[in-house]
Design a binder for these strands. Sequence first.
DNA 1: CAGATTAGTGATTGGCCAATAACTTCGCAA
DNA 2: TTGCGAAGTTATTGGCCAATCACTAATCTG
Lengths: 187, 187
Amino acid sequence: MRMSAEERRESVVRAAVVEFARGGYRGTSTEAIARRVGVSQPYLFRLFPNKQAIFEAAAEHCIEETWRAFDRASEGLTGEAACDAMGEAYLGLVEDREQVMMQMQIYVSVFAAESVGDVEIGEMARAGWSRLFERIEERIGDRTAAAEFMAHGMLINTLVALGYPFEHGLWSAFVELSGKRKQAGEG
Amino acid sequence: MRMSAEERRESVVRAAVVEFARGGYRGTSTEAIARRVGVSQPYLFRLFPNKQAIFEAAAEHCIEETWRAFDRASEGLTGEAACDAMGEAYLGLVEDREQVMMQMQIYVSVFAAESVGDVEIGEMARAGWSRLFERIEERIGDRTAAAEFMAHGMLINTLVALGYPFEHGLWSAFVELSGKRKQAGEG
DNA sequence: CAGATTAGTGATTGGCCAATAACTTCGCAA
DNA sequence: TTGCGAAGTTATTGGCCAATCACTAATCTG
């Protein structure tokens, strides 16, 4: 189906998230992305200058999508209520493992790029993460609680990445951890 | 320098951790590992059946090393004292970013492998992580506290992976978070 | 010091992949 | 209906890399 270049670029980004999440930067061929989009491999290079640019667009998309999920879930809320709402939203978001894996792929790509002298991706990722943290902090209204929220998110990421089923003891330990915060009644 | 096969294998594993941490599985050539060891590339395939096996050995090594650091730091301690000692040890361990990055590379490789039907790495990684968690839980003597310890560890991993300098606001938010636990005086 | 064992190298190959160049098809506006 | 710009394709190339094969050098053992 014929599309405008802009529409195509968006569908390329969506396909790229899926493929990069699975294979990482080096393990994903532009051929695989093109196949998923339904276009020829060389056409990607009309839409983006090179593979790197496709990865960066996918990374940006992924970070923004995370905030959109938090924002939607916690609109109009503050404090602990906002925290709980966002926590629940995150559990929904990470139900497809690809979202989590793309996040992880960003992290590893930062170091890979910096090891060969390219700081661009790193700056982009740090900016994105800082922005995410600040928005969460603002929504919750407490910096320490925001940090704790992020820490729990990172533990979730790891459990999802490693593919532990929800029945596993590590998940239930995490659920206990989340529950404890409420009992303590801190704010 | 001529070595026994077993000694060589160990030096290959050490070199592999460094290289795989930087480039990931697909982004690391056996040539790069061999160069770091100081042997020819084909010789790696006398010591290991294939590239995959080198990666697995490096992964195992990395997970075990983490526990060794915890164990050394918290020997003879329990409860909160053990928790604090291990936390401090972890901050020391992750001072070289490679240790953290290799952990992350394991996580992303699990999904990559499972996406093409290979469950082996995943099982190894989950077993390693479960074992680590159980040991920590046993040392601290509290399951929820152990889960919290892991969550903080994962946040540290992310901050290190993204390359935030220690002066950055995200690190200080984390430090506040760690401090809070002590003030709360929970056990 | 013979000869067997073990450590290690050089050359090569077949497959994969990012990117380019040259060409084709579609849709719309005059 | 024609022609022009934008969407899209086929063919190709040059570089990289895991793995194999055939070979050489060091060390041990009797």
